[in-house]
Design a protein around this nucleic acid. Structure first.
Lengths: 272, 272
DNA sequence: ATACTGCATCCCATTATATGGGATTTCGGC
DNA sequence: GCCGAAATCCCATATAATGGGATGCAGTAT
């Protein structure tokens, strides 16, 4: 009975689904897979993701991915584009999020700070959150520069270490935890950009020294990013502030000024 | 082999999980159950729900509910209170919602209208959405009355027909669909209030006549509510505006004025 | 102190449920 | 109108999810 299946599938589906977790048989495989899909779709830019793309990213057979997707669409956690080829977040997802009071309060608390920063600096300012080994854009306000850059959108998810805010979050972790995290995301990196784990470690090292994470061309070509972690009461930071500008408008003076603004902003509200 | 199980469980678990849907074996039971739990928890007021409460509401064995809850907590879709006895929405849920662009845009579009209404009327104004057979509070702005009433919170979910906004949504449906909906929620009613299906039908009838849904003491004792549906381009309304005030401050003149404000508000933005 | 009650949590045999290979349909480009 | 590529559906199979029951844990009454 076993020999009919032969060699193929020898690894079975030992996916990294929820990144680090032990992935042992705890009777919730399907739900974890569904959650992975939701996270993946949320992480894509607004246009959505295709079935093939999702099934490959999460390492699921197309049948299984399709079945789960159909269910999530039925439940309105996802929505299908008119041509039924692309999946995006559904209304229910937002509705459920409206009831998540703690994070909502945090975003609201920092909203004014982000707005002020955008006004003062003139560039795009982000509130970035940490969610496991990923960073999430929680809020964004665009400044009034003539050349505006919008490298990422609210709700997008990326592995920690990609982008200035995410690097700041990584740098706020203990050496040990940081190394673990980098190692764990290393294998996912190729999907997002050509950045190497070594580059991330180097960026983190510099962020540790200066207190600011800088990035140039990591997220998108010709984009300069600057990030600071917002210290948590204890443990690694869960939030960071970052700004993005077109590299052509960046000067040393501007960077110095932005650093001052960011420092002020972080201290103004105090550790939450 | 069958006879060992005998009579008990003769119905098996023929739950109404996702309300109307056929609930046939489509290979997504666990995910649907998880979604039901998320919806249920989101629908509870902020303090959260207990395992027992959830397992009874969704009609799951405590073991199963516990296992799914544990998974959802692990995935940060839910969060557990410090004493581990109560479940509330988790951060990931909000993060995912941030990526749901369409509904977010709708809420943003109506935000100004809701704010103006709250200022003009002085009472609490809600933007209410329809999500299947439930209503969801999408946005709320409190006016400046001395006596403020906050009967429901943003993110809360209730069967359609409970509350003025939800009644307006129901009334905007075709006779047939409306009747189906009322019949389908009838069995869930006792969990939410003592309101009878007959009362809902009567409220809908009156809302159809006047264009406004009124409620008194349905949601909470001594609370007056007034709602209008926001007509959709086609089909039944998906959004409604409603306001809530303490019954003691309500007069016929006020109601007349509020109706004028609400009508204006709906027409101002035009059907979306 | 001791039993009791109500609840969350864990364990494990059982099978219904989710799975993935493969067939079928749909669609857009030649 | 044919051809590939992708989504969608079908169905035998065994794995993953299930729920009954045992255990643990607080708070309350005895």
């Amino acid at each position: 009975m076993r020999d009919r299946l032969e060699g193929h599938l020898s690894v079975r589906h030992q996916t990294l689904e929820s990144a680090d977790s032990a992935t042992k048989s705890d009777g919730t495989q399907a739900i974890r897979r569904a959650a992975s899909i939701l996270k993946y779709v949320a992480g894509r830019p607004t246009n959505g993701a295709t079935l093939r793309e999702i099934s490959e990213a999460i390492q699921l057979s197309r049948s299984t991915a399709h079945r789960i997707l159909k269910c999530l669409v039925h439940e309105q956690l996802l929505a299908q584009s008119d041509d039924a080829k692309r999946y995006a977040m559904g209304d229910l997802t937002l509705e459920l999020g409206l009831a998540a009071k703690t994070l909502q309060k945090a975003i609201l608390d920092w909203r004014a700070v982000v707005e002020d920063l955008a006004r003062d600096t003139g560039v795009t300012v982000y509130l970035v959150g940490r969610s496991g080994n990923e960073s999430v854009i929680l809020d964004a306000v665009h400044g009034s520069s003539v050349v505006r850059v919008i490298p990422v959108e609210v709700g997008q998810r990326r592995p920690l270490g990609l982008g200035a805010g995410a690097t700041a979050l990584l740098a706020s972790m203990s050496e040990e935890e940081c190394e673990q995290t980098v190692a764990s995301i290393e294998q996912h990196l190729h999907r997002h950009s050509s950045v190497k784990a070594g580059t991330i470690r180097e960026n983190v090292r510099r962020a540790r020294e200066t207190g600011f994470a800088e990035s140039l061309g990591v997220v998108a070509e010709g984009i300069f990013g600057l990030g600071v972690a917002i210290p948590a009461r204890r443990g690694p930071a869960l939030l960071a502030l970052s700004l993005a500008a077109h590299a052509s408008v960046v000067t040393d003076e501007k960077i110095a000024a932005w650093k001052r603004y960011l420092s002020q902003a972080v201290h103004r509200a105090g550790p939450r």
